[in-house]
């Protein structure tokens, strides 16, 4: 499925702001894997997702999906088989367009855009059913502008847009971090349900260790641009937040003094 091999990414090479964000990352996913990704601020989690999605190109290493090397494909070319949800609820939808128009664009993920009608009445019926499953009442507001929705509603819609074509890979980057706790849990439950229904291969970044342990079948921890911990199946099921903290200290040789990692316990 996804194979990331000794990937390096450095920003602003040769300037005073030079910053190595990925220092040799190796990661292999099996079909249907649901991997949660944790790590402190600046550990390289977002950068990892971004290089997989093709937002940035890497200096070294390969990114390979189902046997195809992606390194030279542009972001919009890879988008055909990757769904993404961003941290910022405003990022994943077009605010001036309606709910149904946004979904129609998502339904054409990776297809060549032609001079055919952008939205058919048959599609509207399908969207209505799928929106109803979100349980947010959006099925009654198909022709409302997305800009009128709340952050949680927009994020749920983005999630539906990211998964409506059942992409090979789903990339979630702290997609509940900007929501209030109750809405965040709701969106997480939806995430679980959708991933489960379609057995989507998923990478989900989160700052919340509990969530990271509760969801998915595998957990990886990043630090200074490297993966320092990788727990699968049974190991993961038995791990507790305290164990993760301890393993983090051992693996990184650092005290966890600083960041949100601790706070989110």
């Amino acid at each position: 499925m996804l194979k990331v091999k000794s990937v390096h990414k450095t920003f602003n090479i040769g300037s005073v702001n030079e910053k190595t964000a990925l220092a040799g990352v190796d990661l292999q996913l099996k079909p249907g894997d649901f991997v949660t990704v944790i790590g402190g601020n600046g550990a390289g989690k977002s950068t990892l997702l971004n290089v997989i999605a093709g937002v940035f190109h890497v200096e070294a290493g390969t990114i390979c999906l189902d046997g195809t090397i992606l390194n030279n494909q542009a972001e919009h070319q890879r988008a055909g088989f990757m769904g993404r949800v961003f941290q910022d609820p405003l990022m994943g939808t077009a605010a001036t367009m309606t709910i149904e128009e946004n979904l129609a664009m998502a339904l054409r993920r990776g297809q060549r855009r032609r001079l055919r009608r952008g939205l058919s009445s048959k599609e509207k019926h399908v969207f209505k059913e799928q929106l109803a499953q979100l349980g947010l009442g959006l099925e009654e507001r198909l022709s409302s502008k997305v800009g009128l929705l709340s952050g949680g509603q927009r994020q749920a819609l983005t999630l539906l847009m990211a998964t409506i074509t059942e992409p090979k890979l789903l990339l979630l980057d702290e997609h509940t971090a900007a929501l209030d706790p109750k809405t965040a849990q709701k969106v997480l439950r939806l995430t679980d349900k959708i991933i489960d229904e379609h057995s989507l291969t998923t990478l989900m970044v989160t700052h919340n260790m509990k969530d990271a342990l509760k969801h998915g079948n595998r957990i990886i921890m990043m630090h200074d641009g490297k993966i320092i911990l990788d727990l699968k199946q049974e190991e993961k099921r038995q791990a507790k937040v305290e164990d993760l903290l301890q393993m983090f200290e051992q693996a990184s040789g650092d005290e966890i003094a600083n960041d949100r990692l601790l706070l989110a316990k």
């Binding site: 128009e101 129609a104 664009m105």
Partner: peptide, 28 residues
């Protein structure tokens, strides 16, 4: 007519949120 075609949708989204429509596979 044009702004209601697939191409027109993609163009409107490009002006609205280029990052989003790129992540749906459109060359902005």
């Amino acid at each position: 007519w044009f702004l209601n075609t697939e191409l027109g949708f993609a163009m409107r989204a490009t002006g609205d949120n280029a990052q989003m429509i790129r992540s749906l596979g459109v060359n902005t």
